[in-house]
Amino acid sequence: MIQFADLVKSFEGRPVLTGLTLEVRDGETMVIIGYSGTGKSVALKHVVGLLAPDAGDVLVDGRPVSTLDRAALSALRREIGFVFQFAALFDSMTVGENVALGLRRRGLSDEQIEERVAEALALVDLTGSGDRMPAELSGGMRKRVGIARAIALRPRYVLYDEPTTGLDPVTAAVIDRLLVRTRQHLGVTGVVVTHDMRSAYTVGDRIAMLYEGRIRQVGTVAEIQATDDPVVRQFIEGRPA
């Protein structure tokens, strides 16, 4: 279980998160929606200790992330896959090497790594692309490699930062389908940050809206679709103010 416990974070005096509290249950996919710049990605980065909170904390299975020492943080990160907004592939490595890098860190044998890489690439429909360089791939393919890199580790949790941003609708739908398939295959707990409502409705079990640094509303897809909250309503309908 991932718990955001009254998380506060500001950058150069500008408050971004002002007391984010949210619980992500085991096995579910939680989608965090919100306007651009409201701190969705910032919240996600706290889960793996890439950012340290000013106050509050994130608890993963009861472990407060900001208090973990390096060894404990490293152990925690081995349980979490992170899919970055622009994939963050290592551009000096092939697709296969990108997917293998995390596995190598876990001390797997070359045969096991080869097997896992092939399996992960197959799951994202990129079989046979292991020798290609990231620069040769389209945006959608890069995102799929990013997902393969995360799921190859067989993590307990996968965090997706804007998985469909910048993609055409068809490719975005492919990524959404992939997220659902990943969950079905691996049974992982997921947190998806997005402002793409179609994607949120497709992949989410529950949706939470982040507004002015804290959660405005959290509920199932049906509850969010039927909300009376004017702020949430305006966002999900995409109406200008």
Binding site: G49, L50, R70, R77, I80, G81, Q85, A88, L101, R106
Partner: peptide, 17 residues
């Protein structure tokens, strides 16, 4: 370039220092 394209963050999430 690795820093601004989040490759350094990606390394950390893969448990590399």
């Amino acid at each position: 370039t690795m820093r601004v394209t989040e490759q350094v963050d990606a390394l950390e999430t893969l448990a590399y220092d």
